[in-house]
Design a protein around this nucleic acid. Structure first.
Lengths: 112, 112
DNA sequence: AATATATACATAATTATCTTATGCATAAGT
DNA sequence: ACTTATGCATAAGATAATTATGTATATATT
């Protein structure tokens, strides 16, 4: 994924959040969307993306719908009800994580 | 480490930042400090911490100094010059990561 | 026409980082 | 006497990436 190791563990959250915004997306579309909104900062590799999508589907968080466009198959993913709830949880965890890391970066405890 | 998988990859950065603040620390002290400043949110396990310290030392980012206190040995770690420079890099990466993830969480692109 | 790039999916081998479990040892509290 | 705290360490297993392939069609370039 990213150029730093920090992104490890956040791919699932990213996928879920994008699907919450966009209703349904296919894999390649996700890679392009992420590249676009992060201005190239975050490049999701296929070797990471597709297994992640399969796992989210296996966990019942995503539903799949095949569609043929220009003789190429697209697999559209969308959130299940369970997936929507889980998305909220993951986003809370992400916010909590960011708060925690900001506490460490910007320490008030270094004054005392 | 944390209760979510997001912390994966950030342990090194945390260690380096703490050492930048505190000049020198020993392993157990790091676990307690992190628990304290994150109010229990982040618990660093020994199985993660010690290998991480050894690796940072092997990479030349940390120097070690043994000290005997109350018949127990402490291994104090401190940043090398190389370690100080690398700390700055890691913190920049962390800030960049946070910016990127906030862009995803709080998307302006969903309006258009 | 041939070649490269973009689109679209997938998996296998390897690597990195963590969890969980275990081990050793001393000090302090109940 | 027993438990918790302090202090280090490593091994086995799990997880999630990277890197390298593989297949296939569409489009743009030379």
């Amino acid at each position: 994924m990213g150029n730093s190791k920090l992104y490890k563990g956040s791919l699932n959250t990213i996928i879920l959040k994008l699907l919450e915004e966009s209703e349904k997306m296919y894999g390649y579309e996700i890679t392009q969307k992420v590249k676009e909104i992060t201005k190239g900062e975050l490049q999701i590799t296929e070797g990471a993306l597709y297994p992640a999508l399969h796992k989210l589907e296996a966990e019942g968080l995503l539903d799949v719908e095949m569609q043929k466009v220009d003789n190429r198959i697209r697999k559209y993913y969308k959130l299940t009800d369970k997936g929507s709830k889980e998305t909220a949880n993951r986003l809370s965890e992400l916010e909590e994580y960011i708060r925690t890391m900001q506490t460490i970066i910007n320490p008030k405890w270094s004054i005392s």
